[in-house]
Write a protein that binds this DNA or RNA. Structure first.
Length: 352
DNA sequence: TACCCGTGGAC
DNA sequence: TGTCCAAGGGT
Protein backbone atom coordinates (compact mmCIF):
# COMPACT_ATOMS: atom_id res chain seq x y z
CA UNK A 1 0.00 0.00 0.00
CA UNK A 2 2.59 2.53 1.05
CA UNK A 3 4.78 2.53 -1.99
CA UNK A 4 7.20 5.13 -0.69
CA UNK A 5 7.09 4.69 3.10
CA UNK A 6 10.00 2.20 3.32
CA UNK A 7 12.30 4.40 1.25
CA UNK A 8 11.24 7.47 3.18
CA UNK A 9 11.80 5.84 6.56
CA UNK A 10 15.18 4.49 5.48
CA UNK A 11 16.19 7.95 4.31
CA UNK A 12 15.00 9.48 7.56
CA UNK A 13 16.94 7.11 9.75
CA UNK A 14 20.09 7.98 7.86
CA UNK A 15 19.54 11.71 7.47
CA UNK A 16 17.31 12.95 10.26
CA UNK A 17 18.24 16.25 11.77
CA UNK A 18 19.69 16.29 15.25
CA UNK A 19 17.29 18.37 17.32
CA UNK A 20 17.19 18.99 21.07
CA UNK A 21 13.70 17.55 21.50
CA UNK A 22 14.38 14.40 19.51
CA UNK A 23 15.39 11.07 21.02
CA UNK A 24 14.07 12.18 24.39
CA UNK A 25 11.27 10.15 25.92
CA UNK A 26 9.76 13.16 27.65
CA UNK A 27 6.27 13.95 26.27
CA UNK A 28 6.48 17.36 27.92
CA UNK A 29 9.51 18.26 25.81
CA UNK A 30 7.73 17.08 22.68
CA UNK A 31 4.70 19.17 23.57
CA UNK A 32 6.73 22.32 24.20
CA UNK A 33 8.69 21.88 20.98
CA UNK A 34 5.55 21.32 18.91
CA UNK A 35 3.91 24.47 20.22
CA UNK A 36 7.04 26.53 19.63
CA UNK A 37 7.39 25.13 16.12
CA UNK A 38 3.92 26.25 15.05
CA UNK A 39 4.54 28.63 12.17
CA UNK A 40 8.09 29.07 13.42
CA UNK A 41 11.40 27.86 12.00
CA UNK A 42 13.54 25.26 13.71
CA UNK A 43 16.58 27.53 13.93
CA UNK A 44 14.51 30.18 15.67
CA UNK A 45 13.00 27.73 18.13
CA UNK A 46 16.13 25.94 19.37
CA UNK A 47 17.46 28.65 21.74
CA UNK A 48 13.98 29.33 23.08
CA UNK A 49 13.44 25.63 23.68
CA UNK A 50 16.70 25.32 25.61
CA UNK A 51 15.89 28.31 27.80
CA UNK A 52 12.36 27.06 28.37
CA UNK A 53 13.41 23.58 29.48
CA UNK A 54 15.98 25.09 31.82
CA UNK A 55 13.44 27.39 33.44
CA UNK A 56 10.26 25.29 33.19
CA UNK A 57 11.53 21.69 33.14
CA UNK A 58 8.22 20.02 34.05
CA UNK A 59 4.48 20.51 33.79
CA UNK A 60 4.34 21.26 37.52
CA UNK A 61 6.98 23.97 37.36
CA UNK A 62 5.22 25.58 34.41
CA UNK A 63 1.85 25.45 36.17
CA UNK A 64 3.29 27.26 39.17
CA UNK A 65 5.00 29.94 37.09
CA UNK A 66 3.78 33.51 36.76
CA UNK A 67 2.23 34.29 33.39
CA UNK A 68 4.40 37.37 32.97
CA UNK A 69 7.50 35.21 33.44
CA UNK A 70 6.19 32.83 30.79
CA UNK A 71 5.55 35.67 28.37
CA UNK A 72 8.97 37.10 29.17
CA UNK A 73 10.65 33.89 28.09
CA UNK A 74 8.50 33.78 24.96
CA UNK A 75 9.35 37.36 23.99
CA UNK A 76 10.50 37.54 20.38
CA UNK A 77 8.96 34.23 19.30
CA UNK A 78 5.65 35.75 18.24
CA UNK A 79 2.12 34.36 18.43
CA UNK A 80 2.02 34.95 22.16
CA UNK A 81 -1.29 33.16 22.67
CA UNK A 82 0.81 30.01 22.37
CA UNK A 83 2.59 30.89 25.60
CA UNK A 84 -0.61 31.81 27.38
CA UNK A 85 -2.24 28.58 26.20
CA UNK A 86 0.73 26.49 27.34
CA UNK A 87 0.49 28.04 30.77
CA UNK A 88 -3.27 27.46 30.96
CA UNK A 89 -2.90 23.88 29.75
CA UNK A 90 -0.21 23.13 32.32
CA UNK A 91 -2.49 24.31 35.11
CA UNK A 92 -5.29 22.17 33.72
CA UNK A 93 -3.05 19.12 33.58
CA UNK A 94 -1.94 19.55 37.18
CA UNK A 95 -5.46 20.09 38.41
CA UNK A 96 -7.24 17.37 36.46
CA UNK A 97 -4.76 14.94 34.91
CA UNK A 98 -2.12 14.33 37.55
CA UNK A 99 0.24 16.49 35.51
CA UNK A 100 0.30 13.87 32.74
CA UNK A 101 -0.30 14.57 29.07
CA UNK A 102 -3.03 12.42 27.48
CA UNK A 103 -1.75 9.91 24.92
CA UNK A 104 -4.63 10.04 22.44
CA UNK A 105 -5.46 12.80 19.99
CA UNK A 106 -9.02 13.25 21.19
CA UNK A 107 -8.02 14.17 24.73
CA UNK A 108 -4.94 16.10 23.65
CA UNK A 109 -7.15 18.33 21.53
CA UNK A 110 -9.12 19.33 24.60
CA UNK A 111 -6.10 21.27 25.81
CA UNK A 112 -5.82 24.91 24.76
CA UNK A 113 -3.33 25.43 21.96
CA UNK A 114 -3.43 21.82 20.73
CA UNK A 115 -5.26 21.28 17.46
CA UNK A 116 -5.46 18.38 15.08
CA UNK A 117 -1.85 18.57 13.90
CA UNK A 118 -0.23 19.04 17.30
CA UNK A 119 -2.33 16.31 18.89
CA UNK A 120 -1.26 13.84 16.21
CA UNK A 121 2.36 14.92 16.48
CA UNK A 122 2.47 14.39 20.25
CA UNK A 123 0.53 11.15 20.15
CA UNK A 124 2.74 9.63 17.45
CA UNK A 125 6.14 11.01 18.45
CA UNK A 126 5.91 10.92 22.23
CA UNK A 127 3.66 7.90 22.72
CA UNK A 128 4.11 5.84 19.56
CA UNK A 129 0.46 5.80 18.56
CA UNK A 130 -0.68 5.59 14.95
CA UNK A 131 -1.83 9.18 14.47
CA UNK A 132 -1.64 10.90 11.09
CA UNK A 133 -0.18 14.40 11.23
CA UNK A 134 -0.55 17.10 8.63
CA UNK A 135 1.39 20.34 8.58
CA UNK A 136 2.65 22.73 5.94
CA UNK A 137 5.59 20.51 5.02
CA UNK A 138 3.50 17.38 4.70
CA UNK A 139 0.87 19.15 2.62
CA UNK A 140 3.56 20.27 0.21
CA UNK A 141 5.09 16.80 -0.04
CA UNK A 142 1.73 15.15 -0.67
CA UNK A 143 0.70 17.86 -3.12
CA UNK A 144 3.78 17.00 -5.17
CA UNK A 145 3.73 13.23 -4.82
CA UNK A 146 0.04 13.02 -5.80
CA UNK A 147 -0.14 16.15 -7.94
CA UNK A 148 -2.92 17.70 -5.87
CA UNK A 149 -4.45 20.48 -7.95
CA UNK A 150 -6.79 21.96 -5.36
CA UNK A 151 -5.52 25.20 -3.85
CA UNK A 152 -4.17 25.13 -0.30
CA UNK A 153 -6.64 26.09 2.35
CA UNK A 154 -9.76 25.07 0.50
CA UNK A 155 -12.11 22.61 2.15
CA UNK A 156 -11.67 20.16 -0.69
CA UNK A 157 -7.88 20.28 -0.45
CA UNK A 158 -7.98 19.74 3.31
CA UNK A 159 -10.14 16.69 2.80
CA UNK A 160 -7.72 15.27 0.25
CA UNK A 161 -4.62 15.96 2.35
CA UNK A 162 -6.02 14.45 5.53
CA UNK A 163 -7.19 11.39 3.60
CA UNK A 164 -3.73 10.95 2.14
CA UNK A 165 -2.16 11.33 5.58
CA UNK A 166 -4.48 8.70 7.03
CA UNK A 167 -4.26 6.28 4.11
CA UNK A 168 -0.48 6.27 3.77
CA UNK A 169 0.41 6.20 7.44
CA UNK A 170 2.51 3.08 8.08
CA UNK A 171 1.23 1.34 11.20
CA UNK A 172 3.76 1.19 13.97
CA UNK A 173 6.01 3.83 12.44
CA UNK A 174 3.79 6.89 12.65
CA UNK A 175 6.18 8.98 14.73
CA UNK A 176 9.14 8.44 12.43
CA UNK A 177 6.97 8.69 9.34
CA UNK A 178 5.49 12.03 10.33
CA UNK A 179 8.90 13.41 11.19
CA UNK A 180 10.37 11.96 8.01
CA UNK A 181 7.83 13.82 5.88
CA UNK A 182 8.56 17.04 7.76
CA UNK A 183 12.33 16.64 7.49
CA UNK A 184 11.97 15.86 3.81
CA UNK A 185 9.84 18.96 3.33
CA UNK A 186 12.28 21.13 5.22
CA UNK A 187 15.54 19.90 3.66
CA UNK A 188 14.70 18.38 0.24
CA UNK A 189 11.16 19.12 -0.84
CA UNK A 190 11.35 22.84 -0.07
CA UNK A 191 8.81 25.41 -1.27
CA UNK A 192 11.21 26.82 -3.83
CA UNK A 193 13.95 25.03 -5.75
CA UNK A 194 13.37 21.57 -4.29
CA UNK A 195 16.36 19.20 -4.44
CA UNK A 196 14.60 16.49 -6.40
CA UNK A 197 17.89 14.88 -7.46
CA UNK A 198 18.54 14.08 -3.80
CA UNK A 199 15.01 12.98 -3.00
CA UNK A 200 14.63 9.36 -1.89
CA UNK A 201 11.11 9.12 -3.31
CA UNK A 202 11.31 11.20 -6.48
CA UNK A 203 10.41 8.10 -8.49
CA UNK A 204 7.07 8.06 -6.69
CA UNK A 205 6.45 11.77 -7.23
CA UNK A 206 3.93 12.74 -9.90
CA UNK A 207 4.94 16.38 -9.91
CA UNK A 208 8.58 15.41 -10.45
CA UNK A 209 7.69 13.09 -13.30
CA UNK A 210 5.72 15.93 -14.89
CA UNK A 211 8.39 18.49 -13.97
CA UNK A 212 5.81 20.77 -12.35
CA UNK A 213 7.22 20.82 -8.81
CA UNK A 214 7.11 24.60 -8.78
CA UNK A 215 3.39 24.50 -9.49
CA UNK A 216 2.62 22.34 -6.47
CA UNK A 217 1.13 22.94 -4.08
CA UNK A 218 -1.24 25.43 -5.65
CA UNK A 219 -0.99 28.48 -3.37
CA UNK A 220 -3.97 29.96 -1.67
CA UNK A 221 -5.11 33.42 -2.66
CA UNK A 222 -4.05 35.91 -0.05
CA UNK A 223 -5.66 39.03 1.18
CA UNK A 224 -3.84 42.32 1.04
CA UNK A 225 -2.01 43.16 4.25
CA UNK A 226 -3.59 46.06 6.14
CA UNK A 227 -1.33 48.93 7.13
CA UNK A 228 -1.78 51.31 10.02
CA UNK A 229 0.20 54.13 11.59
CA UNK A 230 0.37 54.43 15.35
CA UNK A 231 1.77 57.25 17.42
CA UNK A 232 3.33 56.15 20.70
CA UNK A 233 4.35 58.22 23.70
CA UNK A 234 7.68 57.74 25.44
CA UNK A 235 7.23 59.55 28.71
CA UNK A 236 10.28 59.61 30.94
CA UNK A 237 10.25 61.20 34.36
CA UNK A 238 12.73 60.81 37.22
CA UNK A 239 14.38 57.83 35.58
CA UNK A 240 11.12 56.02 35.06
CA UNK A 241 9.05 55.47 31.96
CA UNK A 242 5.32 54.98 31.60
CA UNK A 243 4.19 51.61 30.22
CA UNK A 244 0.73 50.28 29.43
CA UNK A 245 -0.34 46.67 29.54
CA UNK A 246 -2.27 45.34 26.57
CA UNK A 247 -5.55 43.46 27.00
CA UNK A 248 -5.10 39.77 27.80
CA UNK A 249 -6.47 38.66 24.45
CA UNK A 250 -5.68 39.61 20.89
CA UNK A 251 -2.55 41.21 19.48
CA UNK A 252 0.39 40.87 21.88
CA UNK A 253 -2.07 39.97 24.62
CA UNK A 254 -0.89 40.65 28.16
CA UNK A 255 2.31 42.31 27.01
CA UNK A 256 3.55 45.82 27.71
CA UNK A 257 4.00 48.74 25.38
CA UNK A 258 4.43 52.47 25.21
CA UNK A 259 1.04 54.17 25.30
CA UNK A 260 -0.05 54.61 21.73
CA UNK A 261 -2.99 55.23 19.50
CA UNK A 262 -3.82 54.73 15.87
CA UNK A 263 -3.42 57.78 13.69
CA UNK A 264 -5.62 58.03 10.67
CA UNK A 265 -4.33 61.14 8.97
CA UNK A 266 -0.98 62.89 9.08
CA UNK A 267 0.91 61.45 12.07
CA UNK A 268 2.05 64.90 13.16
CA UNK A 269 -1.40 66.39 12.90
CA UNK A 270 -2.92 63.35 14.52
CA UNK A 271 -0.96 63.34 17.74
CA UNK A 272 -4.02 64.14 19.72
CA UNK A 273 -5.38 60.81 18.61
CA UNK A 274 -3.00 59.16 21.02
CA UNK A 275 -5.60 60.21 23.51
CA UNK A 276 -7.51 57.31 22.09
CA UNK A 277 -7.59 54.32 24.46
CA UNK A 278 -8.04 56.58 27.47
CA UNK A 279 -4.83 58.57 27.42
CA UNK A 280 -4.98 62.30 27.84
CA UNK A 281 -1.90 63.98 26.55
CA UNK A 282 -0.61 67.48 26.48
CA UNK A 283 1.09 67.77 23.16
CA UNK A 284 3.58 70.35 24.33
CA UNK A 285 5.96 68.45 26.52
CA UNK A 286 6.14 64.80 25.71
CA UNK A 287 8.38 62.52 23.67
CA UNK A 288 6.42 60.93 20.91
CA UNK A 289 7.32 58.65 18.13
CA UNK A 290 5.56 57.43 15.08
CA UNK A 291 5.32 53.76 14.56
CA UNK A 292 4.18 52.06 11.39
CA UNK A 293 2.36 48.79 11.81
CA UNK A 294 2.20 46.60 8.76
CA UNK A 295 -0.82 44.56 9.51
CA UNK A 296 -0.35 42.76 12.78
CA UNK A 297 3.00 41.45 11.71
CA UNK A 298 5.81 43.76 10.79
CA UNK A 299 6.42 46.80 12.91
CA UNK A 300 8.77 49.64 12.26
CA UNK A 301 9.59 52.89 13.98
CA UNK A 302 9.85 55.66 11.46
CA UNK A 303 10.66 58.76 13.46
CA UNK A 304 10.65 60.46 16.77
CA UNK A 305 8.47 63.51 16.69
CA UNK A 306 7.30 65.51 19.66
CA UNK A 307 7.42 66.11 23.35
CA UNK A 308 4.42 66.16 25.61
CA UNK A 309 3.25 65.11 29.01
CA UNK A 310 0.68 62.75 30.39
CA UNK A 311 -2.16 64.59 32.01
CA UNK A 312 -4.41 61.77 33.07
CA UNK A 313 -5.45 58.32 32.04
CA UNK A 314 -8.62 56.32 32.27
CA UNK A 315 -8.96 53.45 34.74
CA UNK A 316 -9.46 51.03 31.89
CA UNK A 317 -5.80 50.90 30.98
CA UNK A 318 -3.26 49.29 33.24
CA UNK A 319 -0.47 51.86 33.45
CA UNK A 320 2.76 51.56 35.39
CA UNK A 321 5.82 53.68 35.91
CA UNK A 322 8.84 51.46 35.38
CA UNK A 323 12.44 52.30 36.14
CA UNK A 324 14.73 52.02 33.16
CA UNK A 325 16.73 49.12 34.57
CA UNK A 326 13.59 47.05 35.14
CA UNK A 327 12.34 47.24 31.57
CA UNK A 328 13.61 43.76 30.78
CA UNK A 329 11.16 42.28 33.28
CA UNK A 330 8.21 43.51 31.25
CA UNK A 331 7.40 41.35 28.22
CA UNK A 332 7.13 43.43 25.08
CA UNK A 333 6.75 42.96 21.37
CA UNK A 334 9.57 43.65 19.00
CA UNK A 335 8.97 47.31 18.34
CA UNK A 336 8.48 48.34 21.95
CA UNK A 337 11.53 46.36 22.99
CA UNK A 338 13.60 48.22 20.44
CA UNK A 339 12.49 51.49 21.96
CA UNK A 340 13.06 50.21 25.49
CA UNK A 341 16.61 49.23 24.65
CA UNK A 342 17.31 52.68 23.31
CA UNK A 343 16.09 54.14 26.59
CA UNK A 344 18.17 51.96 28.86
CA UNK A 345 21.39 52.14 26.89
CA UNK A 346 23.21 55.40 26.26
CA UNK A 347 22.91 56.47 22.62
CA UNK A 348 25.79 55.48 20.40
CA UNK A 349 27.38 57.89 17.98
CA UNK A 350 25.14 57.63 14.97
CA UNK A 351 24.18 53.99 14.96
CA UNK A 352 23.42 52.60 11.56
C1' DT B 1 -15.42 30.05 6.60
C1' DA B 2 -12.40 33.78 6.75
C1' DC B 3 -9.83 36.24 9.57
C1' DC B 4 -6.65 37.15 13.36
C1' DC B 5 -2.27 36.25 15.44
C1' DG B 6 4.66 37.87 15.26
C1' DT B 7 8.90 37.38 13.76
C1' DG B 8 13.00 36.67 10.97
C1' DG B 9 15.25 34.53 7.08
C1' DA B 10 15.62 33.66 2.09
C1' DC B 11 15.49 35.44 -2.37
C1' DT C 1 12.61 47.12 -0.35
C1' DG C 2 9.04 43.75 -1.30
C1' DT C 3 7.31 39.22 -1.08
C1' DC C 4 6.86 34.77 0.57
C1' DC C 5 6.33 31.74 4.22
C1' DA C 6 7.54 28.54 8.48
C1' DA C 7 6.21 21.65 12.73
C1' DG C 8 -1.28 25.92 13.31
C1' DG C 9 -4.89 27.20 16.58
C1' DG C 10 -8.72 30.05 18.07
C1' DT C 11 -12.84 32.25 17.00
Amino acid sequence: MTAFAPELLAWYRQNKRSLPWRDHPDPYAVWISEIMLQQTRVDTVIPYFERWMAKFPTVEVLARADEQAVLNLWEGLGYYSRARNLHRAAKLLVEEHDAQLPEDTKNLMKLPGIGRYTAAAISSMAFGHDAAALDGNIRRVYARIFNVEEALGTTQAEKIFWSLAEDYLPKGDAGDYNQALMDLGATICMPRNPLCESCPISQDCEAYQLDIQDMRPVPKVKKAVPHHVHTAAVIVEDGRVLLAQRPSKGLLGGMWEFPNGRVDGDPAEGLADVIDKGFKLNVEIMNLLVEVRHAYTHFKVTEYVFRCKLIRSSQKVNLRWVSLDELDDYPMGKIDRQIARKLSSPPENEES
